[in-house]
Amino acid sequence: MGSWYGRTLELEVGPVAHGGHCVSRVEGRVVFVRHALPGERVLAEVTEDKGGAFCRADAVSVLEASARRVEPPCPLAAPGACGGCDWQHADPAYQRELKAAVVAEQLHRVAGIEREVVVEELDGGSLGWRSRVRLVAGKDGRAGLRAHHSHRVVPLDGCPIAVPGALDDVLARRWRPASELEVTADGDGRTHVRELSTVRGKVRARQLTGGVAVQHAAGRDWRLDAHGFWQVHPAAAGTLSAVVGEWAEAPRGGLAWDLYAGVGLFTAVLAGQVGPDGRVLAVESGRRAVNDGERNLAELPQVGWRAGRVEHVLADAPAPVDVVVLDPPRKGAGRAVVDAIAAGTPDRIVYVSCDPATLARDIALFAGHGYGLTALRAFDAFPMTHHVECVALLQ
């Protein structure tokens, strides 16, 4: 069979799949279709075909539209244009339904769990929420975002999902081609800009404005590296810390682990629960984040920080532990970390995840140690994209 690249297919669009596309089938092959919605009939152009059982395509013409289809708020949310958003062509409530279907499907397929999922809206609406954006300068020096699955830079005049005004100065000027620009709008409304450029094979960082961000969550004011990890949606940190606090129930005087701790958002919540006679072990691989965390939580003697890979630190961590909170990167925790957590015999595990596929995989791994999923909440912390934030309680 020859390559289908560039071929136009007439498709009946099937269910949503993880990754911002829907599934269709043609001539015995799976076609992952972007810019389409379940139940639509479209003309789709094949954009990637590496052979095998599937290929990828963009819906370039809608022959029969879903009733939930809307006009995208950004003209660049289109085939061949910006790859930053996945679902601008769906109304926001339907976006949440699609994400809920993905989470439920991953739990069923990977972990064997049947569960109805509701994705909750965060305060602030579906636009103007993105507080951190990483741009790249094209050959003409204009800043933009890359096209989907491409190195091609799509220049921007604005971005409707970014915090209003945050990108204005960066988009108004020209930059060294191929420079990357990190823009952060903090909790006090200040904008921080850093330029990353590669000179003779070495990456050089130049802070242009700001550098130390101020954020507000969990009843505290935080000062941290403006370009380090913090929740992107302004309402996410407060929402997630409240759910973690509700489900962790760390006992007074007890021991808690906060893994992939960042600057200590959940550490602070756990420290308040165990009190001055308890202990919280905060584990984070990023040295700058650990330094920021130690400064922000300096008045809490019950908190002990360890810098390093989680699976290495847990090899000699204090145990048994009462409760474990973990918020791993998109790749999830994995078997080594799951095994190390289970060896600590916690009563409760609160797992914060930005990827439903790796969450489902790790839930299945925890099930092998006798831990079952007893509660799940999902939040639309990344409107217009396919990403979703989940919090799972395992006992």
Rank of each mutant, 00 (worst) to 15 (best):
L365R: 15
S353Q: 11
P320M: 10
G368M: 03
D355P: 12
P328H: 08
G332T: 09
G370Q: 10
R361T: 10
A336P: 05
C354S: 13
D355Y: 03
L326D: 07
A307D: 04
D347A: 14
D362K: 00
A340I: 04
A357E: 15
V323C: 01
A340L: 04
K331V: 15
V337W: 05
V324T: 11
T345R: 15
R361Q: 13
V324G: 00
V303S: 02
Y351S: 03
A317P: 03
P328F: 12
L365T: 09
K331T: 15
R306H: 14
A340N: 13
L314D: 13
V337G: 05
G304S: 15
R330Q: 06
T358R: 07
R361I: 02
A336E: 14
L300C: 09
L359A: 15
H312E: 15
P346D: 15
R335L: 11
V310W: 04
V325S: 01
R361G: 12
Y351G: 03
A298S: 14
W305Y: 11
V338Y: 03
R335D: 12
A360L: 09
I363G: 06
L326T: 10
I341E: 03
A317V: 00
A364P: 07
V337A: 04
V350C: 04
V310E: 01
A317T: 07
V303W: 03
P329Y: 10
I349N: 05
R348Q: 08
T358A: 10
A342R: 08
V313C: 02
